[in-house]
Amino acid sequence: MSAVLAGTLAACEGPDPAASSFALPPTASSAPAPTGDEPGTSTGTTGTSGPVPEDSSTSSTGEPGTTVPLQDLGMPDLGDLHPVGCKGKIDFLFVISRFGYMETMQERLIEAFPDFIATIQSKFVDFDYHIMVVDGDATWGSEVCNADCNPTGCPYPDYPCDAIESITACDVTMGAGTVFPAGKGASNVDCGIVGGRRYLTREQPNLSETFACLAQVGLTGDHLLGEAVTAAMQPAINDPGGCNEGFLRDDALLMITFISNTLDLYSAGKPKLWAEAIANAKHGDPNSVVMFSIHFPECNPSDRLCDLVKYYFPYWHIADNADADYRPAFEVATDLVEEACSAFIPQ
């Protein structure tokens, strides 16, 4: 397990289980600031902020589409810049657990993807996307098979033993885009991204099929999603020469989708630091990010991923990973994207 952030692994105080799993920019009252060691609470209804964890300074202004800058996260006051909209330029980051028993959830994500993209495309005439998948582990494939890729040492008959010698540094870098999922339940093939990139663009033929290949990351790995998203936001990995060179665009809206079946108790750092990395990657503008999680909507006190999604960004939705069909949840996410895009101010 690689650590990209220093910090403790203390879990944040979680929300009230009755809080809504869906929020647009706040339209009602401001969330009260936390006092002492206990998080603050609010009504938890749609359009208002939920309970605030102890390491957060998020608050709402009461006006749609705006938030008070999170000074703790180094977010500057953007002033009265006039929103020009994202004009259909959106960077999609899917952060997927490789932990055991994820096969059904990966399948449901793959099933929902074509409808999701079609709906987004219908909302934006000039839809211009980057789509990248990262998983919650810095390793490639199965360590057991990589060490001994013979029938006696590797229990997965379709494991791509021939590829072991050709894996690159980016294949074993936390936060780098997945291009060749390997291991139990994985695609076990090079997914064929065009242009030598680690993410998909409008140049990619067979978009849905290629995404299906990428999203089937398998079941032989970890679920360090907080650590993975933080690593994917770092300048070095997105700058020229980095593994994800060019993925994040200053003039694009960013949508981050998490999917997991376990609590992220072991990622380095804590939600405040993960949120800081995301905000910094978007020039301190939380309104330029849409957070979507297919996880546990009840948000128990140990759910650090819920804290990240729910308390630091105004556009968010949490769906239940046990749902038989993820398409309705993605419908909600498309509305969030449209709302956020209309208020977007490119940097």
Score class of each variant (00 low, 15 high):
S267R: 06
D335S: 13
T230C: 03
A118H: 13
A319T: 06
D115L: 03
G242W: 00
C243Q: 01
R304P: 00
L336W: 12
E38A: 08
C170N: 06
D162M: 00
T220Y: 08
S60R: 13
P314G: 06
T178G: 00
G284L: 12
F92I: 14
H130M: 06
E245W: 11
A6K: 12
P69T: 11
G74N: 12
E276A: 10
S59D: 01
T178N: 01
T104F: 10
D251H: 07
V179R: 03
R108G: 02
T178P: 03
L253I: 07
V332W: 02
P114N: 10
R198I: 01
S187V: 08
A215K: 04
T61D: 06
S97V: 08
G47F: 01
I131E: 03
Y266I: 05
S293R: 04
A163D: 10
T139A: 09
M102H: 01
M255K: 13
C341V: 09
Y326S: 01
W140Q: 01
C12A: 14
G141P: 07
R198V: 03
G14C: 07
G7D: 10
C12F: 04
A277Q: 14
S122W: 01
T230W: 00
D335R: 14
S267G: 09
D137L: 08
V52Q: 13
T173M: 11
A268Y: 15
F22S: 04
C149P: 00
Y312S: 08
S97R: 04
C191V: 13
S42N: 15
P235K: 07
A333D: 12
F99N: 09
Y101L: 13
P235L: 08
G246L: 02
V289E: 12
D171Q: 11
G221F: 05
R197I: 02
I131Q: 08
M1L: 13
G153F: 02
G177M: 09
Q204P: 03
V289Y: 13
G100R: 11
I96T: 09
E143D: 09
Q347F: 13
T201S: 10
C12M: 03
G218N: 06
E331F: 06
F180K: 02
F180W: 13
T61E: 06
A232R: 08
S59I: 07
G218W: 01
A186K: 05
E107T: 14
S57V: 04
G85F: 04
A228R: 09
S97F: 03
A169S: 11
D72W: 03
P64Y: 11
H82W: 11
D37L: 04
T257A: 06
I117F: 12
G195M: 07
P151Y: 00
L73E: 02
T220K: 09
V337S: 03
P51R: 05
A281F: 07
F292E: 11
P64V: 05
A275P: 05
T46D: 13
E103I: 07
C243W: 10
G36R: 05
Y159H: 04
E143C: 07
L81G: 14
E111G: 00
P32N: 12
D171K: 00
E203A: 09
L253N: 07
E338H: 14
D325R: 11
I193R: 05
L305I: 08
W274M: 02
V84A: 11
I345S: 06
A176Q: 05
T334F: 04
